[in-house]
C-alpha cells in the first residue's frame, strides 16, 4: 500500500540540512508498523514529506500510495487518496468551528473522489456516534478547531478526524505524547476500532507504552534519517529496556 524507496529529503531553505538519508519502507494493507527513534532522527519530517508540507526538498527516492506517486500530489489530493496524518502538534484555527471544519473536510474528500457529499443530517449522526466513542462532548465539537483544547483533547480530536475521514493509510505522529493513561486508552481504542484488512497504520512513537495497546506487526528503529533495524514487537521491548544506545552502536559498527 505505502511504498517508500530510498527517500532523501533536505530543508528547502538550507540544503546543508539533510534529514532523510535513504529511507525505505513497505507497508501492506492490514498491517500496523511502528517507527521508534531518538528525537531529531527525522520521524516527523517523514510524516510531513509524505503528507506534502512545504519546506522540504526531496532529492532522491520515491513514495507511492497504491502505486500513485505521492510526492507529485498536492496535500489535499494525498488526503483524498486516503493518506492521513495525525499531527504531533495539531494546529489551532480560531474562528473555524470544529464541526464546520470536519464537515467541509469530509465533503471535500468525497467530492474529490466523485462520491456523494454527506447531508447535514447524515454528517451529524455520524459525528455524534464517533465523538461519543472518543468521549468528545458537544462543546468540543462547537469550539474553534483545537483552540483552548488540552493536549489530550487535541490528540483525541485528531483521532476523531481520522475516524470521520476513514483514510486507508494512517500515520500517527507521537499521538501518545502528553496523554495520561485514560486518554491513551481512548486513543488506542479509537485506532484499534479502525483496524481492518484494507487499512494500514504507521505509528510513530517514542515509547513502547502505546504499542501495548496498538499491537504492531513490524517495528522499525529510525536514526539519522534512516531505518537502522526492523523486527517484530520484541524490538520495541528491547528499546524500552535498554534505550537506543546499543542499537545505534550496532548500526554504526
Amino acid at each position: 500500500m505505502l511504498e517508500i524507496k530510498n527517500l532523501h529529503a533536505e530543508l528547502e531553505e538550507d540544503s546543508e540540512v539533510k534529514i532523510l538519508k535513504g529511507l525505505s519502507l513497505t507497508i501492506n494493507p492490514g498491517e500496523v508498523h511502528a517507527i521508534m527513534g531518538p528525537n531529531g532522527s527525522g520521524k516527523s519530517t517523514l510524516s510531513y514529506v509524505l503528507s506534502g508540507r512545504d519546506g522540504y526538498e526531496v532529492t532522491e527516492g520515491s513514495a507511492t500510495l497504491d502505486g500513485a506517486d505521492l510526492l507529485e500530489m498536492e496535500p489535499e489530493d494525498r488526503a483524498s487518496a486516503g493518506l492521513f496524518l495525525a499531527f504531533q502538534y495539531p494546529v489551532e484555527i480560531p474562528g473555524v468551528g470544529n464541526m464546520t471544519f470536519l464537515r467541509t473536510a469530509v465533503n471535500a474528500q468525497r467530492k474529490a473522489r466523485g462520491e456523494e457529499e454527506l447531508s447535514a443530517g447524515e454528517f451529524l449522526k455520524l459525528i455524534r456516534a464517533k465523538a461519543k466513542e472518543l468521549q468528545i462532548d458537544a462543546d468540543m465539537l462547537k469550539r474553534p478547531v483545537n483552540v483552548g483544547f488540552s493536549g489530550g483533547e487535541k490528540k483525541r480530536n485528531e483521532i476523531l478526524q481520522m475516524a470521520m475521514l476513514e483514510p486507508r493509510m494512517c500515520i500517527l505522529d507521537e499521538t501518545d505524547s502528553g496523554l495520561d493513561v485514560d486518554a491513551m486508552k481512548l486513543v488506542s481504542d479509537g485506532v484499534n476500532a479502525l483496524r481492518s484488512p484494507d487499512r494500514a497504520f504507521l505509528v510513530i512513537t517514542h515509547y513502547q507504552r502505546l504499542l501495548n495497546h496498538i499491537k504492531p506487526d513490524v517495528v522499525h528503529i529510525m536514526s539519522e534519517g534512516r531505518i537502522i533495524k526492523s523486527g517484530g514487537p520484541e524490538l520495541a521491548l528491547e528499546v524500552e529496556e535498554n534505550g537506543y544506545g546499543d542499537l545505534l552502536a550496532e548500526a554504526k559498527a
Binding site: 508540507r53 467541509t104 469530509v106
Partner: peptide
Amino acid sequence: PHQLFYLRARGLREDQAKLLLVLAFLAE
C-alpha cells in the same frame, strides 16, 4: 501557513482552505 497546511492535509482544496481562513479572520 501551518493552518493552511493543516486544512489541506484534511482534504480542503487550497482555495477552499484560504477562504475558510479569511472568513475566520473576519468572524470576530
